[in-house]
Amino acid sequence: MATEQSVDLVDDDTVGWFTKAVLLAALTAALAQISIPLPGTLPPFSLQPFGMFFAGLLLGPLWGGVALLLYVLVGIAGAPVFSNANAGLGYVIAGQGTGGFLVGFLVGAVVAGAIAHRSLTPKPVADLSVPVQVVALAAAVAVVYAIGVPWLAVVTGLPFARAAAVMAPYIPLDLLKLGIAVGVVQGGYLAGR
């Protein structure tokens, strides 16, 4: 005897946010493979934080969080999406001492989205004022370091102050990335998104 099952279609808005989250997860993974070498002893300029910035600003706290959660889950499942094509739970925990930063990106996207949109439903990015964008992304960067530095200390057994000193050279670069991300939004490149 044939059984009937009704199809519970996903509504159009949800499909739109879902596909944006999927593609921003893929973009975060792609940007993690790209870095620009800097002169001298400066660390390479990694583009990975842009995934967190754009996920928070474009998708808000819920779907921005989903995007970064998908990124981390796919990496744990074995896809080579972390820096230098790494994968696995071991990399999320240890990384190159930087495993906590992956978790920090996830929480950072949620925090940036929550501050920028103040609602689970995101507004168009063009409606976000510059100060709100700056505060949202600065909070995201602060969260990334608030999670990443103690995590580094726990994984490596370094005293907290020394772990913070190891990560300090990256802060000006992250602030520069924050400025570039706000510039991208203000330049009207994401109008209508």
Binding site: V22, A26, A29, Y71
Partner: peptide
């Protein structure tokens, strides 16, 4: 979402 990210990651990386 995981299945789609795995499928689309190589395309986005190529982009």
């Amino acid at each position: 979402g995981m299945a789609l990210v795995v499928r689309l990651f190589p395309l986005v990386l190529a982009d």
